[in-house]
């Protein structure tokens, strides 16, 4: 392997901080991963809710009281925000994979767009389903 490129490679985002300047693109990509894991946590709550509903009215009422409290609303809203952000972020990765949206300006607007869209969806969820 005489002419394999060694040493002259792009830096990994693992080095964020001292060696690698944080950018909208890399930070938003890391947030996609974090929000994905948050959604896994949220699915525990959703599945538990379905499970208690399938078991008995007493179990349902006990768990539902927690889920429908202000704290439960907060958790669900955070979950909705993360879910929306994650979907859009993953969609962005698909677009990148297929070779679109590579221009820095476009990629950065998508990063901001994801934040805005997730916030709008969370706000709409609050208005439509929780604020009543």
């Amino acid at each position: 392997m005489a002419d394999v490129n060694r040493g002259n490679r792009p830096l990994s985002p693992f080095m964020i901080g001292p060696y690698y300047k944080p950018q909208l693109t890399s930070i938003s990509s890391i947030m996609v991963r974090i929000t994905g894991i948050v959604v896994l946590g949220l699915s525990v709550v959703i599945v538990a809710w379905l499970f208690t509903a399938s078991i008995s009215e007493a179990a349902f009422n006990a768990f539902n009281r927690i889920v429908q409290s202000w704290f439960g609303d907060l958790v669900l809203l955070a979950g909705v925000w993360c879910l929306t952000y994650h979907i859009l972020g993953r969609l962005r990765h698909v677009l990148w994979d297929f070779g679109y949206c590579w221009e820095v300006r476009v990629a950065e607007s998508l990063a901001i767009g994801m934040l805005v869209a997730a916030t709008v969806v969370a706000a709409l969820t609050f208005i439509l389903f929780l604020a009543m």
Partner: peptide
């Protein structure tokens, strides 16, 4: 989750 949905 599947069990709960099926049971209902």
């Amino acid at each position: 989750g599947l069990f709960a949905l099926a049971r209902m």
